[in-house]
Every structure is written in structure tokens, then in C-alpha cells.
């Protein structure tokens, strides 16, 4: 399996090199982390999708299927790639905190966003890729992102609604959300661990689905 992940890194080496260099500069030369974060998310996502593209183009699926590799190895290698990307990004931000001499807490928010967003995005993309191939997965991804944007705006509207002075609807919902928020651990570390667990569960379910799809597929 490690060979497959190494292969994915190697085949994408030019892309990764540029991205990592840029990330390095951005992390350590600016203080404004928000765009850097978005950039990090983008290249992490891009690395996995590009590796899928490389395997899928020119009927590449046949090359892998002719080799004595278990289906589970092929599928899980993509998830391992994803996990590696998540880890690398987390490390980059942790390193950033350490070097800047700031507490880890400043980057906690960013780290949580990385873990959560990437896990979610990989969990959705990979089964679609295994089912439909790279081309269709890309179309799906476009629709998906537009959907996320719509939801984000919808969420914003929801928050405004909750803040509004309309007692019947807004306050009730806000109270419910606050109750939920009360239940969450205050401690950042615990929150982080909880988040990682949720992310892992989502990824595992996604991997199981991908595996079933790949096992039943033809090249």
C-alpha cells in the first residue's frame, strides 16, 4: 500500500513541490492565516483528486488491475493519501505555532477546520470517483461545491434568523443550538479529539462504501 501512496506522490511531484513551497512561504511569511488555510485545503484536496486522475486517465485502471494487488489495497491507498495530507497540513500549522512562539491554541481553530473539512470532502469525493471515474466525479465536485456555498449562505441566513427578535422561531432555535453547544466540551483538546473521532468514523464509512463499489466495478 505504501508503494501506491509513494507512487501518487511521485507522479504528482511537480504540483506538490510548487504547492508546498508556496504554503511554506505563506505560513511563515504572513500573519494572515485565513487565505493560507484555504490554500492548504485546496492543494490537499487537489492532490487526492489529481492522483485519482492519474490512475484513471489513459485507461490506467487496467494497469493496476493487471497487477497482483488486492482491491482493498487500491482503495485504502487513496484514503491513506488523504490522511497523509491531513497530517501534513496539521503538522505545518503546529510547526507554525511552535516557531512563532505562540500557543497552540491560536491554531487549534485552523487545525480543526483542516481535519473536519478534508475528512468530509474526501469521504464524499472518493466513493463518487470509484463509482463514476474521474470525469464524472469532477462534474459532481463542481455541483457539490456550489451546494456547499449555497448551504453556507443558508447557514448565515439561519444564524441571522436565530439572532432576530422573532420570538417564536428564532429564539427557540437559538436556545436549542445553545443547549447543544453547552453539551460540547469546553476544553479545546477534548473537542479536538472528538472531532478526530468523528472524522475517522466518516472516513471509515466512506472507505467501506468505496471498497464495495470498487469490488463490483469493471475497468
Amino acid at each position: 500500500m505504501i508503494h501506491l501512496v509513494m507512487k501518487d506522490f511521485y507522479v504528482n511531484r511537480k504540483y506538490l513541490l510548487i504547492a508546498v513551497l508556496y504554503l511554506g512561504f505563506a505560513l511563515f511569511l504572513t500573519d494572515n492565516l485565513a487565505p493560507t488555510l484555504i490554500f492548504a485545503l485546496a492543494i490537499s484536496y487537489g492532490t487526492v483528486t489529481r492522483s485519482c486522475y492519474n490512475d484513471d486517465k489513459d485507461r490506467g485502471g487496467i494497469f493496476l488491475r493487471a497487477l497482483p494487488i488486492r482491491a482493498s489495497t487500491v482503495v485504502l491507498s487513496k484514503y491513506l493519501l488523504g490522511l497523509t495530507m491531513i497530517l501534513m497540513n496539521v503538522l505545518a500549522f503546529v510547526l507554525h505555532s511552535v516557531i512563532r512562539g505562540q500557543g497552540l491554541e491560536t491554531d487549534y481553530g485552523n487545525i480543526m477546520v483542516i481535519i473536519f473539512t478534508l475528512s468530509l470532502v474526501y469521504s464524499v469525493y472518493l466513493p463518487v470517483f470509484f463509482k463514476c471515474g474521474y470525469m464524472k466525479a469532477t462534474s459532481f465536485q463542481t455541483i457539490f461545491f456550489i451546494g456547499i456555498l449555497v448551504i453556507s449562505f443558508g447557514f448565515r441566513a439561519l444564524v441571522d434568523f436565530m439572532k432576530s427578535s422573532n420570538p417564536a422561531g428564532g429564539q427557540w432555535l437559538a436556545q436549542r443550538v445553545l443547549n447543544l453547544a453547552e453539551m460540547l466540551p469546553k476544553d479545546s483538546t477534548t473537542l479536538l479529539i472528538l472531532l478526530c473521532s468523528v472524522a475517522l468514523v466518516i472516513l471509515t464509512i466512506s472507505a467501506a462504501i468505496s471498497l464495495k463499489i470498487y469490488n463490483d466495478s469493471s475497468v
Binding site: V11, N54, K57, D58, R59, G60, I62, F63, A66
Partner: peptide
């Protein structure tokens, strides 16, 4: 030993 119709590889490597 399998050889497919029009063999497949990682073309850029």
C-alpha cells in the same frame, strides 16, 4: 503474464 490490447502505463513516466 497479461498484456492488454494497447498496453497501459503511467505515460508521463
Amino acid at each position: 503474464g497479461y498484456v492488454s490490447e494497447q498496453p497501459v502505463f503511467y505515460e508521463n513516466e
